[in-house]
Design a protein around this nucleic acid. Sequence first.
DNA 1: TACTTATATAAGTAAATTATTATATATTAA
DNA 2: TTAATATATAATAATTTACTTATATAAGTA
Lengths: 114, 114
Amino acid sequence: MRVSSVEIDKAASILKLLGDKTRLTMVKLLNNHDCCVCEFVEIFKMSQPAISQHLRKLKDAGVVRETRRGQWIIYSLNQDNDYYPLVRTVLDHLPSQDNLLEELEEQGLRISCE
Amino acid sequence: MRVSSVEIDKAASILKLLGDKTRLTMVKLLNNHDCCVCEFVEIFKMSQPAISQHLRKLKDAGVVRETRRGQWIIYSLNQDNDYYPLVRTVLDHLPSQDNLLEELEEQGLRISCE
DNA sequence: TACTTATATAAGTAAATTATTATATATTAA
DNA sequence: TTAATATATAATAATTTACTTATATAAGTA
């Protein structure tokens, strides 16, 4: 198989980020749907600062991007970097987590609507 | 793409293990060559217990296997588990680290000879 | 047998990680 | 302008991690 190669230090740092269950699930979700912070707070039953801090790490590494939409900040997967293929292949090995968003939807708590 | 899927908790724990530069390099090397502990000690310029502890974690997770050959214990990649495809795809995104073994060879410090 | 070599384990420690609570900032709405 | 909502940041505490040194075990060799 021929795939783009990522410097080993950078790869290790990306894998470390993905090696946390919360962040890994976040990124898997973002692979299919953009999400805002408050949705993650609901999904993970975790404090808002905790969620913000996970997203900050992912953003600092370039894995995700943010854009403001009114009072919400919408996070999305950044497909525009050298190690996106690595991230993408990892995600391909994970089962869909979309049921988490469907539960939100049933509760009427879904915000971002792309 | 259709690939085998790994439970997200297990995937996170594997990625966490691979998210350390030393372990990631070890596993990348083991993908091509079996190695013993003392070789890793030379390669990483790290204490023998530090190396042993990294290998222990990889072994406990099922990523690597060990077999004794005389006084040496040879480590190899365990291709016989459900998440090997995940590990393998990650490794495919990394540049070869074989130069590290070549340097050993030049110093006459290579042990395992498969 | 005693010594050497290869490896593992145990105990201790410094640094990193992941959460928390408290507070600040920015947008929207009354 | 004031209040409410969404998010970020700061300070802090508990836990985990990745080393270190000291020691134990197991195999090979003189």
